[in-house]
Design a protein around this nucleic acid. Structure first.
Lengths: 406, 406
DNA sequence: AATAATTATTAAAAAATATTAATAACCATG
DNA sequence: CATGGTTATTAATATTTTTTAATAATTATT
């Protein structure tokens, strides 16, 4: 009877909305289920579940998707989300580029476009993002009213509660948070999340961490990021900074880190550190095919080193191996503190595959108490960068559902 | 209508029991509340909350405790737990001694006795515990039928789900977990928890961590233990080992730890390490009053060192300070990973007060990114060992309530 | 192919619950 | 000290929701 956006102050409305949102969320996660299962799952009676399902059908949220299997007797009618009820706009913002993606509610990728927007050019970034997004939506004929919300992922220290990115303060105005600015311009709800955390959610819902409750995701990009899943939920800490593995000290006499401290893990195991070490080796005349891989005037990148390793270049294999050992030592620390079931390695350096994962695993075995190792597996992500996109999507949907059914 | 122990398969019974247990738990936590507040808190109507309250009164769980203040109008009738409905038996088991305590449901300490039971003498420990507990109960006239359950805290790697203590396997039999053995002998439900975790709960419910959501408790006893509170809940990890701060490597060329690895934090910052360092200093002829504090034939203990420091002994102050610095460095790592609001230092070394806490705080400032420091306070526990007792109690009550109202 | 068995769905009755209204209790103010 | 305002409590009514029973749909078996 009550429409969705009405405020729900009465007890029944609260309970009803709770059941509605649980139902929608369950259908998003499970794809499809029967009324019986839903009723049992949420401790409601079958008639009331039926009632809510029928309402949701009328409102266009869900529809029948066929019948399920039955051991015996009448098979259940299955219901699923109406994937085209809304679309979502995903902004996957990185240091070197930005991706704009449209998903439907069944996580089907509708459109995907890489736009030339570098987070490094913080000045004017948002204005450029606005116009390029407008153009993107227009070009593909996505009507704004068909969008349910915007999911944004970025690297950096993100405080999701107030919706700002501490690392890129230029994106925030004194009177308006980053999410508020985006929300105002596009007139849509916005969910902001750190990139590594998005990846963690993606791996949990669609990847190697499915069904697991305690998960660590190590993202090796320019820095080292740690995504943490506790009881199946992303863990952000008191102000959203949890998981800063990159800036724990691993060498008391190490290099100066860009954060101002000395000997951070970042100075040893990041993509940046890898390139520095490779360049130093080349300068010292170490035997390696690296220089031959470079075009005239081209800068050395991590993918060169990875390619060289795959080609058997001992110098590069050695570099990666040492990086893996150090990284594994850092991960061992995190394992002691979080006691996870699985550690997933992602990021650009994950493409180095066993060259990284083997020494990481070795280091974990060396530095972890045996009690931890028994229940632990270390794996390289198989979803790659798709984990992040799907993670943003999942995070956004959860945000939207809890918002929609207040 | 339905009695408590009946199995609740109907939807109504499930919801009713949920509300009952929420109510009892709220009354345990808050001490007393009005029906109005309870109804609002748990999204129930006032008549149904009234009904449940009346039932609980009939069953002897709660009673009126007076009237509350009112800004205007009729003041509310307050209800509170019937503190004498049941008592709880708390076993605080440590390496050097064991305490048996009886609490009522208002957390009032009824009896407390220190018994001469060393966890170190694992052989025959349980049988001695059984008989000494029997004697304790008999002596104080505690009737077994008045006991609601038993809360047990011990040091060691505890897997609470299966109820065993990995560090003291002698306490477990092949066919029976530790909790099962206790439960069978005393014919009571048993809740087992690690000592540092119990302390963390105690600090959260009754101490410095009240109202905080993300808390770290550092327990410096023979080893270094870390208690973790995430979203107000104790965090145990996948197999119950989370928080093993003591065995992360801090010195790659350090001493051999009893765990078999090298350079663990335990080898630098535990009570054991402190005594070792002090003895070494004495042997090397350092200037200190320590030898004078020792009786003929007495062994050096941590409290000697602490007393010497309080008396201005520079050598001991230096020892504690260096220990604090190293500990702070380890805590800084944990802070980077958990981003807590507060870090509480407890354990025997906490009695060293500022001699420890100052360098700890200093180290945290040195090794933590500024973003973490802004929202962080470091404090020495004020409850002392009482935090652990109250923590076991709180943990037990929660366990019992969720069990009682299935 | 028909029937028994099993399960989903629908409908009607019963129970439980929430809402509304009325009453009681109390505080503050004039 | 009385009265108006405010809030808690109780009672009565209305609504929702569950439960139970009946029906429909389908599979497996004889």
């Amino acid at each position: 009877m009550t429409t969705i956006s009405e405020e729900a102050n009465s007890v029944i409305d609260i309970r009803r909305n709770r059941l509605r949102s649980s139902l929608i969320l369950e259908l998003y996660k499970a794809g499809q289920t029967s009324i019986n299962k839903m009723a049992r799952l949420f401790h409601a009676s079958i008639p009331s579940a039926t009632g809510i399902v029928n309402d949701l059908i009328k409102e266009g949220w869900i529809h029948e998707t066929g019948t399920g299997p039955a051991r015996a007797g009448r098979p259940p009618v299955l219901y699923g989300l109406n994937a085209q009820k809304y679309f979502t706009l995903i902004m996957d913002i990185n240091r070197h580029d930005t991706q704009l993606v449209i998903f439907d509610l069944a996580n089907q990728l509708i459109v995907r476009r890489q736009v030339d927007l570098k987070l490094e050019d913080a000045e004017g970034f948002l204005d450029a993002l606005f116009s390029k997004t407008d153009a993107f939506l227009k070009f593909h004929g996505i009507k704004p009213e068909k969008l349910w919300g915007i999911g944004v992922s970025m690297p950096g220290l993100i405080n999701a509660q107030i919706g700002i990115n501490q690392t890129y303060p230029n994106l925030t105005r004194a009177d308006q948070s980053l999410t508020a600015r985006l929300s105002e311009y596009f007139q849509l709800p916005v969910a902001l999340i750190n990139d590594t955390r998005a990846t963690t959610i993606g791996e949990h819902r669609f990847g190697l961490a499915k069904e697991k409750k305690h998960v660590l995701t190590v993202n090796i990009d320019w820095g080292v990021g740690l995504g943490i899943l506790v009881n199946g939920e992303v863990f952000t800490g008191a102000s959203g900074f949890a998981g800063e593995l990159g800036h724990i000290q691993v060498q008391s006499d190490g290099l100066l880190c860009h954060c101002g401290k000395i000997g951070c893990l970042d100075t040893v195991t990041s993509g940046f550190a890898l390139i520095r070490q490779a360049e130093e080796g080349i300068r010292l005349g170490r035997i390696t095919i690296l220089p031959q891989l470079l075009q005239e005037g081209e800068r050395l990148e991590t993918h060169h080193i990875i390619r060289a390793a795959h080609n058997g270049d001992e110098f590069c294999i050695d570099l990666l191996s040492r990086l893996g050992m150090e990284l594994g030592k850092g991960i061992a620390t995190a394992v002691h503190l979080f006691n996870p079931e699985i550690v997933i390695v992602t990021g650009v350096l994950a493409e180095a595959g066993p060259f990284i994962s083997n020494p990481v695993e070795q280091a974990i075995h060396k530095y972890c108490l045996s009690d931890f190792k028994n229940s632990l597996t270390v794996r390289i992500s198989q979803l790659g960068s798709k984990a992040r996109l799907l993670g943003i999507q999942a995070h956004l949907i959860e945000h939207l559902v809890s918002k929609e059914f207040s």
